[in-house]
Amino acid sequence: MILIQMIRNRFLFILFLILLFSLSLNSFASNNHRTPLIETINSSNKLEYSGYYINKSSKKITKLSIRFIAKNKYGEILEANTIRLINNSSMPLGPGEKLYYSFMIDSDPKNIYTKKLYFFNE
């Protein structure tokens, strides 16, 4: 009986450590190779974004896309766009290379409260 209890306690302890480890991994996963975007309002009163993507890995990137999500003050999605930055395996982004990109969103700037950016690469 005591042995079972000891094994169970050890199992719970290891599970706890694994949970903490995965949490620590999550915190570093959010810190990927991205550089900040510049946001301005252009002449047509729309939000315009410009940025660079730097390939800090040792592999070539053949597919790269960016997903932008804009939400209002109630947390509802106003606009969600996925923009393909690289979609051609014949023109990959090599290690250390920098890619300029720019895009614009249609939603009214004054209604946007939260903006989220996600990069997807292969």
Binding site: R34, E39, T40
Partner: peptide, 17 residues
């Protein structure tokens, strides 16, 4: 642009408005 945000070790700003 890369050096600009290198001071942030945990969380980086996504957008400079």
């Amino acid at each position: 642009i890369d050096e600009l945000s290198s001071a942030f070790t945990i969380t980086k700003p996504d957008i400079i408005s």
